[in-house]
């Protein structure tokens, strides 16, 4: 049964990489069931994350957000700050797609804080970039410029000309 769970997970990932997002969802849902049977919270967290990603490419952003929130909840329970940061970043982008810029900003700010804590300058740059866009969408141009300038400073520091 444990091996079956792993097989479903690998199958789901393969379907995802092939662009078969509905089949990826079906496989990851099976993987999730087995993870819960075993009380395997790490596997459950991975399944939620993979499901969230698949729903993004299916255009079902509300579903994606729900799975990313579960990913975030488990990341906090498992005290995994890197995954917590990744979840917040995913939620920020998902809420941008949903045009809920206030929620997007909330999650991107959370991502920013963790990225700074983890000395992740690339993550910090991404957060600032995202925040600049979200604040622009809200018409808060002072904050938008603030974060856009931070993004520029970090990009120069990292040598990312793009």
């Amino acid at each position: 049964r444990a091996a079956q769970g792993r097989a479903y997970g690998n199958l789901g990932n393969t379907h995802y990489l092939l662009g078969n997002f509905r089949k990826a969802v079906m496989s990851h849902e099976q993987r999730l069931l087995i993870a819960r049977e075993f009380g395997d919270r790490s596997a459950e967290r991975r399944a939620y994350s993979n499901l969230g990603n698949a729903f993004i490419f299916l255009g079902e952003f509300e579903m994606a957000a729900e799975y990313y929130k579960r990913t975030l909840q488990l990341a906090r329970q498992l005290k995994d700050r890197a995954v917590e940061a990744q979840s917040c970043y995913s939620l920020g982008n998902t809420y941008t797609l949903l045009q809920d810029y206030e929620k997007a900003i909330d999650y991107h700010l959370k991502h920013l804080v963790i990225a700074q804590e983890l000395n992740d300058r690339v993550g910090e740059g991404r957060a600032c970039w995202s925040l600049g866009n979200a604040y622009t969408a809200l018409g808060n141009h002072d904050q938008a410029v603030h974060f856009a300038e931070k993004h520029l400073d970090i990009s120069r520091e990292l040598g990312d000309r793009n």
Binding site: L17, A43, A47, N53, F57, T96, L97, R126
Partner: peptide, 26 residues
């Protein structure tokens, strides 16, 4: 169409580009 317009937010597009290869492995 409306959703596609929002994919043109460059930071979101960059995230989605990364997402195409993002799988949590067993």
């Amino acid at each position: 169409v409306q959703r596609m317009n929002f994919i043109q937010v460059d930071s979101v597009q960059r995230w989605m580009d990364d997402l195409t290869l993002m799988t949590e492995c067993e």
